[in-house]
Design a binder for these strands. Structure first.
Length: 163
DNA sequence: GCCAACGTTGGC
DNA sequence: GCCAACGTTGGC
């Protein structure tokens, strides 16, 4: 059992999109970064994942989901009409993978990037809070997973609220 | 919309 | 194999 974090732009696909389909799986397609792909390939059914909203008004962790399949080739890489089409990828040797995920729950509040950055010591090594990191799929250490989840029950500090 | 930081591409 | 140019990510 491992823990992960995956980013999505809510304008494209948000936690509410996922929440509308409880019990169903959703293909996490469109990952076009080798490091992120490799992390997806090392996922197992049952792994838990933080859903992170990026490139939006309030970037942060907004929910939980669960991995439902092993990684398999992302079909959008072969679709010439698709935004994520990759003409360099051959069906006999697919370059990009995806996993399917299911909705678990929304968090009671958004754990903002700003708030998470305020816990630099506890979250040391987490790619999300590392300077310059743009990784969209990353592992979360178990103790860090627990710590982040525990923040849900607390009020964010004034500084984390941007005050 | 800006732009820093990063990843990829391709000429050499 | 180097590295400049380019494209993308994503916070602000």
């Amino acid at each position: 059992m491992a823990y992960w974090l995956m980013k999505s732009e809510p304008d494209t696909f948000s936690i509410d999109h996922l929440a509308k389909r409880p019990g169903k799986t959703e293909a996490w397609d469109g990952v076009r970064n080798y490091q992120a792909r490799n992390f997806m390939r090392s996922m197992s059914r049952g792994d838990e994942v933080f859903f992170y909203h990026s490139n939006c008004d309030e970037p942060g962790i907004v929910g939980l989901m669960r991995v439902r399949t092993e990684a398999y080739p992302d079909p959008t890489q072969f679709d010439s009409k698709h935004a994520h089409y990759d003409p360099g990828s051959k069906p006999e040797e697919p370059r990009w993978s995806l996993v399917e995920v299911e909705f678990v729950r929304k968090l009671r509040r958004t754990l903002t990037l700003n708030e998470l950055r305020g816990h630099a010591e506890r979250l040391k090594g987490l790619a999300l809070v590392m300077r310059g990191s743009r990784l969209s799929v990353m592992p979360v250490r178990p103790e860090q997973w627990k710590f982040i989840l525990s923040l849900e029950k607390k009020d964010p500090s004034p500084s984390a609220r941007g005050e």
